[in-house]
Design a protein around this nucleic acid. Structure first.
Lengths: 126, 126
DNA sequence: TAAAAAAATTAGAATAATTCTAAAAATGAG
DNA sequence: CTCATTTTTAGAATTATTCTAATTTTTTTA
């Protein structure tokens, strides 16, 4: 692992958020001010291909990078806020339904977050 | 519904594939050669906001548009081929796990398609 | 139905996201 | 240390998408 690769890996793994390439770039610059955006692209792709990080694609948002530890995602349909959550593991059920071909799955659950819910409730009253 | 909106809606709903904006544009041009790409963007966004079509985002692929009818997606980890599939409905289980806040979910299942499986098997033998 | 208002479409510029290329720098093996 | 390999850099190129303002089409209404 090169120094940038390692640092980028650490940034992603210690963050509680789901970072975009731009955010990783901003973070990386604090330690290495001369680094260039293409380096971030190169390294996140390398890490992703090596399955050391996860890429999260959501409609109308740029890709985000996340720890590999298995978990699901909760997305607010109003503000697009993205939160980690763990639902009951579906592996057994999916393997049963589709056999040995099964590799992995990605589950996104949509809801309206408490903040947006509150905001909408207030709007209705006025 | 405007003529373009309707036609785009029909293209998406009668296709067995998962179309990109470019593919919809190409198809639409057959009937309306003067149409412009921005019109496709305008209309798919309008349809998507009205929840009349579905947007499918997968890592490293441009967004695709799909019929709204509830189904899951199967994605080959080798060739990225995207297929429709229906797994056991998770609504009840998710509602039980997270309560009334639950709105909907999106499940993607990864596997290696028969063609890629075959190709890899052959490669191993040589 | 004609004129006015509203909505949709167009062309093309602008922006954003990502990849590519070739040169320079860093690393590593012998 | 020296040559070969890998990584990084800078910036151009490409792709995807949005925006703007003018034009066209559709709808409303007097």
């Amino acid at each position: 692992m090169t120094k940038y690769e390692e640092k980028i890996y650490n940034i992603i793994n210690t963050s509680t958020e789901h970072l975009t390439v731009e955010q990783i770039y901003a973070e990386l610059k604090k330690e290495y001010p001369k680094v260039v955006l293409a380096t971030v692209y190169n390294n996140v792709n390398k890490l992703w291909k090596a399955r050391l990080i996860r890429k999260v694609s959501i409609e109308n948002m740029s890709d985000r990078y996340d720890r590999i530890v298995k978990h699901d995602h909760l997305i607010c349909q109003r503000c697009s806020k993205l939160t980690d959550i763990s639902f009951e593991d579906l592996t057994a059920s999916l393997r049963e339904q589709m056999g040995e071909e099964f590799l992995s799955y990605d589950l996104k659950v949509f809801y309206i977050c408490p903040e947006c819910r509150e905001r909408e409730k207030n709007r209705k009253h006025t």
